[in-house]
C-alpha cells in the first residue's frame, strides 16, 4: 500500500505491507534507527515518536496508519550543526542516560510534556515518565535532567 508521510520535515513515499509496524518502517525502511524497540507491546516506551505532535508508541501503530501524518523522531530533535536540543543538553549535563537505549523514547515523550508543562514538579515529571521504562538510571537523573531541561527552555522562551 502506498503511503506518503513527513518525518522530521522530510517527505517520504513508500509502498508498505499493511502489517508493517511504524517502528519497523522508521528503523528499517527509512533507516532512522534512533527510535528503539524494546517490547513491541506498548509498555516500555522506547519506540515513542511524535505523530502529529502527540507522543505515541510506534510499535502500536501500523505504518499505513501514518499515511498523511507528520512524524518526529529523535533524529529531528537537535537543531543541527552539532548542537543539542535543550532537553538533550540537559540529559548530558545531568547524566540522565547510561546505556541510552530508552533515551530517544524518553526525549520524545518529554517534548510535548514540557511544551504543555513548562515548570513541572518532580511528581509531575515522574508521572509523565511512568510510561517509559529505564533499567539503568533508577530514573533519578532523568528526573533531574527533565527539570533542568525545563529551566533551560524557560530561559530560551524569556
Amino acid at each position: 500500500m502506498e503511503i506518503t508521510l513527513t518525518v522530521n520535515g522530510v517527505e517520504h513515499r513508500a509502498d508498505v505491507e499493511p502489517r508493517l509496524l511504524l517502528s519497523d518502517f522508521l528503523r528499517h525502511a527509512l533507516e532512522l534507527t534512533g527510535t528503539h524497540v524494546g517490547c513491541e507491546h506498548g509498555v516500555c516506551g522506547a519506540c515513542t515518536v511524535l505523530m502529529d505532535g502527540a507522543a505515541v508508541r510506534s510499535c502500536l501503530v501500523f505504518a499505513v496508519q501514518a499515511d498523511g501524518c507528520e512524524l518526529a523522531t529523535v533524529e529531528g530533535l537537535a537543531p543541527g550543526g552539532g548542537e543539542l536540543h535543550p532537553i538533550q543538553d540537559a540529559f548530558r549535563e545531568a547524566h540522565g542516560l547510561q546505556c541510552g537505549f530508552c533515551t530517544p523514547g524518553i526525549l520524545m515523550t518529554l517534548v510535548p510534556f514540557l511544551r504543555e508543562n513548562p515548570d513541572p514538579s518532580e511528581a509531575e515529571v515522574r508521572a509523565a515518565l511512568s510510561g517509559n521504562l529505564c533499567r539503568c538510571t533508577g530514573y533519578q537523573n532523568i528526573v533531574a535532567a527533565t527539570r533542568l531541561a525545563a529551566s533551560k527552555m524557560r530561559e530560551v522562551e524569556v
Partner: peptide, 9 residues
C-alpha cells in the same frame, strides 16, 4: 488509563 502515549491513540 494506561499512560499518556497510550491515551494519545
Amino acid at each position: 488509563v494506561a499512560h499518556a502515549q497510550i491515551r494519545n491513540r
